[in-house]
Nucleic acid binder design. Structure first.
Lengths: 368, 368
DNA sequence: GACGCGATTCAAAACGTTTAGGTCAACTCA
DNA sequence: TGAGTTGACCTAAACGTTTTGAATCGCGTC
């Protein structure tokens, strides 16, 4: 049939643009123009080229394109651990938003270790991702990494946790508010000695949740008892230990700063033969489908996980696109979902709350 | 200080190898040799180069390296939905293994849609990933995609689900065995009318679980009642609907083929005012930390999720490395974890079972 | 002094694109 | 007619690496 081309592309090797050019007897430029349908290409040439593309099953090599365009259409995303059920939805939100704008996600886990985080970032920078979505591990970057980030001039957007030394762009939940509402609800349901199982206070959102907790206590004129505050690490095991420590002091209310620690706590509760909500009221953070099966049904503060990811990705892509506006700190509103674990089904529907403040609070900070 | 270089790299732009070469007054080759510590570079030159690298904060551009080496050190991974709690651990396993060998993971969600899967694969191919880890959506690839895959000659490894038209390399769990054991356990605990909530039978593992179910019934001489078998789609909602349909026929045992559908089922159970294990025994697939909080404690068949991901990644990387040995189908053993949901705490410790077959079954198929 | 021979270093091609800066013919308009 | 203007198409440089084949050097050998 057709044995026209002098140097046919080898089998097991993708056709390149020059293969297509040779096959259709035009210049590389013309093929490129057809592929990106730029400038006007004559109808017959265009058809010849399209024919060749189909015949050779040609797809542009995005690596080469990245090299010349200095854009990879890839964003790096670093989360502490994709296995923590909080993050899949955030990642999914980011992926959905990224996908929609032609970006892909390179995923890394830091295990909340600064060292792993640094090597991940270095790798991502070497791979020339266009931007990075980061849920920062506790701790400060090394000077050389910081220097490199500055030189590369690549945008970061922080997710869930702030870290102003790196960038002011962040999409977080209003943790202060969420914790405040959680504790207020405990107070409203009659609890007076309220304990807290906190995340690592070096992490910004744990600190915020702690602040919200303090604020609510103060406002409700409840005592702050240091014995009733335990710092965990957001993992199950720490919730379990914290639970044992805390419950020995017999609080009548507990606010737990994340889901994993709640699981640990409930295990401790079980071991100690206590009952919720009879012995103590409980409000937890993050909501999940399987919570419907827990008994008692847990009252939780839900964070808009998907939205956290998608808005972060959208902001990042804007930055990549050259929007150098003021730094944006976007705080998304949490939602108190009242169920049974405080034993007091006061009806504050989430619709009501949403209605009173329909927009997520967006704060644009002046550059200090 | 030093204003030596003629064309210093612009600010906001990473130093390139030629910047380093200029700075240290050597050729590009020498820098490359130092960076990859290949061939012998004289001590003084080497030091000059290293000095310049540090000064300019140089890191090689992996895009350029990829272009010339025709390797990206990146593997694409396509899962149905990272939000399905089954997958994060699999992805994590893959990421850990990949990381260890210097590979990164480009993550895509297919939502079990063939169309999304195809566009994801096309994108990954264009990005020249070195290989793809795929949990196949139901359905057949289009001929053009299949052609392209063949031409590109890029290795695939299937995860959790087989699809022999694409490749025989797969890492899956022994679903037949898992389902078989689940149903046998139901039978042993005295259940006679056992129902099944199945995944989509077009998906290989759902089919296998169905087969295991049938086998156990047969072996235990239990009736197969079509009314007691409902096909879901592995999502919560379908488990809920299936639960309603199924429970109206009053089975005394149910085996559910995945966790999400179990959650749906339990919601239906609750609505119908039934009790487990009094009214029916239950065995579910997949185990999770939060199951410790469910009451009754669920008896489940746990799949080695992390291992599924890591072994798949390792196999894939072997293929990338040029190992063209016989196709490998690796079946990992599931583990029956007996708890309370069958109301019969017959003690078959998982240690015992593991002891009898210490190696995961590895089957090397002859090329047909 | 010519030769050979490692060891070290270099210049240039290659990877597959995009794109700036051309060429060339056809058309427009005075 | 001829200068100008368009439109279609092309050539070649560039992106930042790796790698091949060649150049240079020091030095011992005959």
């Amino acid at each position: 049939m057709s044995s026209k081309q002098a140097k046919p592309q080898k089998p097991g090797k993708a056709a390149s643009i020059s293969d297509v050019a040779r096959e259709s007897g035009v210049s590389i430029f013309t093929v490129s123009a057809v592929v990106n349908n730029k400038s006007h290409v004559g109808k017959n040439l265009r058809e010849r080229v399209e024919e060749a593309i189909r015949k050779l099953n040609y797809r542009p090599n995005l690596i080469a394109r990245s090299l010349i365009k200095q854009k990879t259409q890839t964003i790096g995303m670093i989360v502490p651990d994709i296995v923590n059920p909080f993050f899949p939805m955030v990642v999914r939100g980011a992926e959905d938003a990224a996908q929609k704008q032609g970006y892909n996600l390179l995923l890394c886990n830091s295990d909340d270790s600064l060292a792993k985080e640094e090597t991940a970032i270095e790798l991502l920078l070497s791979k020339r991702v266009d931007g990075i979505l980061l849920t920062k591990a506790a701790g400060e970057f090394s000077p050389s990494l910081r220097q490199m980030i500055k030189e590369m001039n690549i945008p970061f957007v922080l997710v869930m946790r702030t870290y102003p030394q790196l960038t002011k762009d962040a999409v977080i939940s209003d943790d202060y508010q969420g914790a405040y509402e959680a504790v207020c609800h405990l107070a409203r349901s009659g609890r007076r000695r309220i304990g807290l199982i906190s995340g690592p206070l070096k992490i910004s959102n744990a600190k915020e949740r702690w602040r919200g907790f303090r604020k609510a206590l103060e406002e409700k004129k409840l005592p702050y008892e240091p014995d009733l505050v335990v710092e965990g690490d957001y993992r199950i095991e720490s919730g379990f230990r914290a639970g044992h420590a805390l419950l020995s002091h017999r609080p009548d209310g507990i606010y737990v700063a994340n889901h994993l620690m709640t699981i640990g706590l409930l295990k401790a509760v079980d071991e100690m033969g206590l009952k919720c909500p009879e012995d103590f009221g409980l409000v937890s953070f993050d909501d999940y489908p399987w919570l419907g099966v827990f008994r008692p049904r847990l009252t939780t503060v839900e964070l808009p996980k998907h939205q956290l990811g998608s808005e972060a990705a959208e902001l990042l892509i804007q930055r990549i696109g050259g929007n150098h506006g003021k730094p944006v700190l976007k705080k998304l509103l949490p939602e108190l979902r009242i169920r049974e674990s405080c034993g007091f089904a006061q009806f504050v529907s989430s619709e009501q709350r949403r209605a009173s403040s329909p927009e997520p609070s967006t704060v644009s900070l002046a550059n200090p």
